[in-house]
Design a protein around this nucleic acid. Structure first.
Lengths: 129, 129
DNA sequence: CCATGTGTATCAATATATTGATACACATGG
DNA sequence: CCATGTGTATCAATATATTGATACACATGG
C-alpha cells in the first residue's frame, strides 16, 4: 500500500491519528487491504503528509490492539492474517456488559419497550457479519 | 421534580454536565417531565450531589438552547411549553440508535455472536421495569 | 426596601487529549 | 559487523474540555 492513498487533513476537528485509524479500518473491512499486506512505514506516511511519525505509530498501535494489524519485527506493520480468539466468550461478554447496562438504563428513562430495541439491535448485529 | 431523581456519577468517564443533559433529555422525551414542570434549582441539584452549581447551569443552558427547557426569570428552569408532551416511539428510538450501533460495532470487533448479547440485554430491560 | 431565591458571565484551575522531539531496541541484508 | 530499515517508550509541549470560585443581575414576596 502506498502512503499517498491516505487522506489526512491536519486542520480537521477529528484528530489525525483517528483519521488514520478510521480510514485503515474501512480499507481493511472492504478488502482494499488484504491480510498480509504491508502498510507504509510510519516515517513514510509522516513524510508524505508532514506529520509526526509518532502520530502514525499511535494509529497503528490502536489497530494492532484491535487485532486489525500485526507487527512484523524488522519489516513493519501488516494487515493481520488471522483474528485469534484469546479470551473465551464469557470474558468478552464482560467487556460490553457495562455498555449493555447503560443502554438498558437509557431505555428505561425513555420508557421504551424491550421488543423494538432487541429487534433493532438484532438487525445491526446481523448486518455487520 | 426532585433533584434526587438525577443519577450522577462524578467519577464516570462521561462528563457530569453531559450526564445531566442526557437524563433530562430522555425524561422529557418520555413524558416523565411534562411541559411547564419546574426543574430543581442549580443549587439544589449541586447541593444534593456535591457538585458545582455552574456544572448544572451548563447542562440547563444546553437544554435551553435545544429548546427543551425555558428560563422563567426569578423562578428557574422549566420544561418548555412548546415541547410536545410525549415523542412517538420512533423518535425516542432515534435517541438510542447511535448507542445501539456502537454496541453492534464493539460486538463485531469482539466476534461475539448475537444470541448471548440479545439475551443479556433482554434480561436487563426486564429487570428494570 | 431587602432578604432570599433564581441563573449565569467571567475567569482560573484542572483534567484530559493530542501532537511532537528525542533516543532507543530490534531485524534485515550486505 | 554495521548501515539502514522497522516501531515505540518516554517525556514535553500544546490544545481542548471540564470543573469550579466568585461576583453579579434579576425577580419574588414579605
Amino acid at each position: 500500500m502506498d502512503a499517498s492513498l491516505l487522506l489526512i487533513q491536519p486542520a480537521a476537528p477529528e484528530p489525525i491519528y483517528r483519521q488514520i485509524v478510521g480510514q485503515l479500518r474501512r480499507m481493511i473491512a472492504s478488502g482494499q487491504l488484504a491480510p498480509g499486506d504491508l502498510l507504509p512505514s510510519v516515517r513514510d506516511v509522516a513524510g508524505q503528509h508532514a506529520i509526526n511519525p509518532m502520530t502514525v505509530s499511535r494509529a497503528y498501535s490502536l489497530l494492532e490492539s484491535e487485532g486489525a494489524l500485526e507487527r512484523l519485527r524488522g519489516k513493519g506493520m501488516a494487515v493481520a492474517a488471522t483474528h485469534r480468539r484469546i479470551q473465551p466468550e464469557d470474558k468478552r461478554m464482560q467487556l460490553i456488559d457495562l455498555h449493555l447496562r447503560e443502554l438498558a438504563r437509557q431505555a428505561r428513562e425513555l420508557e421504551l419497550p424491550s421488543e423494538p430495541i432487541l429487534r433493532r439491535l438484532g438487525e445491526l448485529l446481523e448486518d455487520q457479519e
